[in-house]
Amino acid sequence: MEERIDSVEGIRQWTGSIPLHYEYTAGVAGERFLRGLAQGKIQAGYCANCKEASLPLRIYCIKCYGGVERSVLVRSAGKVAALTKTQFGQGGERLGEPVAFAYITFEGVTGGLVHRVADGVRVGSSVRPRFKPKRKRTGSILDIEFFERDLRPRTS
């Protein structure tokens, strides 16, 4: 008795696909967030009850579950909490150049963002977003090209 099929040539088989395509709405909060990016702004939700800003922007607070109607600009520099470099793309293809991704937090904001980061960024680095030129922004997370080291002198 064969325990495994070594060749499919001797058996009947079929090929198939499910031809699906998706067009997602960004949602109430997502719409607000993406419109902000197109203007070169990162917005966090602000819960008036918890007095807390959080990312990603939501229409509800995940602490108190009250509605979140306000958003606030994230003005602070980001801080790299974790960093990785990938050699492979989503389909398993080898990338020509490794791409660095980081989990970035912002002072005074719960949560954070994942994004590409420039060379020279390390865990603990202070970073800021590099936006595309305004005419090239579409209202997408990719309106931020990457985060790069924030070399501005600290003001406080």
């Binding site: 960004a26 949602g27 108190c64």
Partner: peptide, 27 residues
């Protein structure tokens, strides 16, 4: 046919309405 809200947002709105009607909160 098409709502702007995401699935999460739709779930939140329906849940909040049900809880408000019951006099309860998510907690």
């Amino acid at each position: 046919r098409r709502m702007l809200e995401t699935g999460r947002e739709l779930s939140y709105e329906a849940s909040k309405m049900a809880l408000d009607a019951a006099g309860m909160t998510f907690k």
